[in-house]
Every structure is written in structure tokens, then in C-alpha cells.
Design a protein around this nucleic acid. Sequence first.
RNA 1: GGUCGGUUGGCAGAGUGGUUGAAUGCGCCGGUCUCGAAAACCGGUAAGGGUGAAUGCCCUUCGAGAGUUCGAAUCUCUCACCGACCGCCA
Length: 423
Amino acid sequence: MLDLKWIRENPEAFDAAMKRRGLPPQSEGLLSLDADKRKIQTDMQDVQARRNAAAKEIGKAKASGGDADALIREVADLKGAAQELETRERDLQADLDAALSVLPNIMKDDVPDGASEDDNVELRRIGDIPEFEFEPKEHYELGDALGMMDFETAAKLSGARFVVTSGQIARLERALAAFMVDVHTLEKGYLEISPPVMVRGDSLFGTGQLPKFEEDLYKTEEDHYMIPTAEVPLTNLVRESILAESELPKRFTAHTLCFRSEAGSAGKDTAGMLRQHQFAKVEMVSITTPEQSDEEHERMTACAEDILKRLGLPYRVVVLCSGDTGFGARKTYDIEVWLPGQDSYREISSCSTCGDFQARRMKARYRPEGEKGTQFVHTLNGSGLAVGRTLIAVMENYQQADGSIRIPDALVPYMGGVTEIRA
RNA sequence: GGUCGGUUGGCAGAGUGGUUGAAUGCGCCGGUCUCGAAAACCGGUAAGGGUGAAUGCCCUUCGAGAGUUCGAAUCUCUCACCGACCGCCA
């Protein structure tokens, strides 16, 4: 949610920021609605003030045995006017809220302009792309040959975009998640959380998935939504709370399943387990002061990169351009891992800083030390990493000529000493 | 699914129609004391919003909505959520 007061004071900057998102200028409409609302609000408050004063006088008069009939009549007259003004004020406020709740975040100045992912800017490449003396296969070919990755049975159980893994491949996925969570908690200062994967609409409003992106979500008959990312429960941990500055930054990590309808991605990445309705992800979320968030963004990205380094997976980091940056983000780094089978880099992590955008939506504040009042916190989230895609990356990068898969050294302890997966 | 209880400030927790935006305790801030700290004592301390150049003034908020009343945290109704117990169950 954007700060209406800021829009009021910086209408040109606001329109320019929306233009970067490909949206038409709208400060005029918004501010005229705002002016109407404040006019009504002022009128309403005047009436309420008079009503309150009269009620107090009545109380005094009655207490001293005086006559209050005139005052009682006055208050009765005010009642109708007050109610009408209250109704109008509330309607205008609702209109304003509805308009604000679908506006995307203002991007940082250093986000490059661009229309689509083709305009994202590469920042660095890390790790050497492996050379194979054979034609590297895609993960699903490898998995199928090993007899440990079964899409047909998954389709029988659940339809398209699901997979059944088994044996050492299933174990590898579990090992990856455990490895990631251990690194974040034992070395990077994140607190492990095991959150609900079903949440209420309020939580999704808080992080920005609702009201605009409902079609991407699965919803139960009891009106719970399945989380599309653990960013939702982790960030909402601080919803409607006022934290002490000394508590910040707060860092949370969780290994959860995520659920996405993938509406709108029909035909994209249909082969293999790159894009599934259900997938495991280790998420990182940080809650910071405004001063800390830039540095935390770099730190969080480095935490995600560190996982890839330790797994010996080559990757690159790109900064998303204006056209590719998500609704709630001020700036996003994507980490893309090298997939030899696809001969390309594919997204495996996305680290975003959201400023106070989500904090406003969920009323998450803190008390700055030595100052009165409260301020909104800043929130950041990043994958550390997408577990399913990391599984794919390990399989493809560590594949051998005979179709077996070597286990990266860092994972061997998590695999119970197994160093190789073969049929 | 059934029965009962609850929802108040950063936290705990009083408050059942009248100047209560709300006792008290904790926490936090400032002061006294101290070489310094702790303890003790004194004072301050809800959030959001409107308005104004500003000291300020005003409005809203005691889970949400509706109602009764001149006046509601307090009474009535509806809903949501939380908890306990019973039943069922991983």
C-alpha cells in the first residue's frame, strides 16, 4: 500500500513511478477523491464535536438538577446529519482503499527501465559452466531413466504439473532442504519457522497477493488459501504489531510446500518438474528498519548465493527491470542457475526488498529508539532456494555419462554418506 | 459436531450506562540519588486520522457490524476470531 500523504505531496513523482509500471497517470483522480473524503470528514467531525459537547453538557445539567430539554433536542437534530456524513465518509474511504490496494509499489531509482525479462540486467556470473564429453540430458530424462521420477503416475493421481519422486531422488530433495535450512539457521542468523501453509485472506492482502492476484491461488471450501510462498506466513508473523527497534532486524526462514495454480502459464515449462502446482521452497524473510533494508537486501541475496556456491552450481545474478519487477517489490534480484540440459540459466531464487509497502498493508510497525511514535518496518523476502529447482540443477550439473548423478560434497552428510545416485 | 467462557493500551490486567481514552502492575523515556550502575523515589508514556504556520484544537478506536440511549468499553442482536471441556480423529 502506498502512502496517500506522500502521493498528495508528490503527485508528479507518483505518476512518474506508475508510468514505469506501465500504468496511466492517476494522481488527479486519486487526489480529488481524497480531497472529497477529507472535506466530508472535516464536516462530520465538526458535527461529532458539537454532539459530544452537548452530551457532556446534558450530563452536567442532569447532575445539577437543571433543565436539558433544549440540548436534548439539539442532539436529536444533529443525529441525522451525523449519520449521513458518516456513511458518505465511509464510502469514500472504501473507494480510496480499493484504489490504493491495487497500486503497485514504487520501484527504487536504480531499477533499470525495461519492458520484459529480456531487459533484466546481469550483474555477475559465478562458477564455471561444466563441460560434458557427452550430450547432457534434462533432469526428467535422467530421473525417468533412474526410475525415480514418474510424471505419468503423478498425472494419474493429480493431473498435469505434478511429479512422484522416489528413492534417492526423493531423499536428495529432502537433503537439499535440510542443508539449506541448516546453513541459514546455524550460520546466517535466521530463525527456523514451521508455519501454516493454509492462511486467511488477510495474510495474503498483507503481502500483496490479494486482492489483485487471486486467480493464482488455491482456495479451500473453508476460505483458506494455500500459500504460494512462505513469504506470506513469515512476513505476516509481524502483522499488526509494534516492535522495539532493538528487535530488528528479525530474520525468519522456513521450508514449506508452496501451491500455485499457474493460471496464465499454460504451455510454459510443461516438461519436467520445473513448474509445478506444488513445490518445496526454503524461504527467507527479514523485517528491518528503513535504514537497514538496503544492506539487508544484499545480505539476503548473498545468503541465497552461498547455497549455490557450496553446492558447486554455476549461476548468475540479474536485477529485474521495471517491467519484470513484481507488484510489491521496490527492487528484485533474481538468481538463475545454469541448467546444462536446457543450455540456459533458469530462476532459482528471487530476492526482493519491499520497503514499507507490505508493512503498511499489514500494519507492522516499530518504535524508533529515542523518538516518539511509530514507523512502518521494511520487509524483504527471498528464496533460499527453490528446492525442486535446486534438485533439477544438481541432477543436470552432476550427471555422468552413464546417467548416474554425483552428490555434491556438501550434501553427502545429508545423504547418509551416499556419493552417487544410480539405478 | 456439542456445551461453556473469552476478545480492553507495547505486555499483563481492572473496569457493567455519565467528563473513563480507560485503574493498577510490568516495560519504555526523563529526573533525583550514585564515582558509575542497580535498587528506591518522582514525573512522563496508546494508536490512527482531520485541521492549522505553530503552541494547539478536534475526531475515531476497548474484536467487527447493527441497535437501544441525550450519552455505551459497559445494555441488546448478528458475525468473526481465540480458548476450555465433551465427542470423533492423524
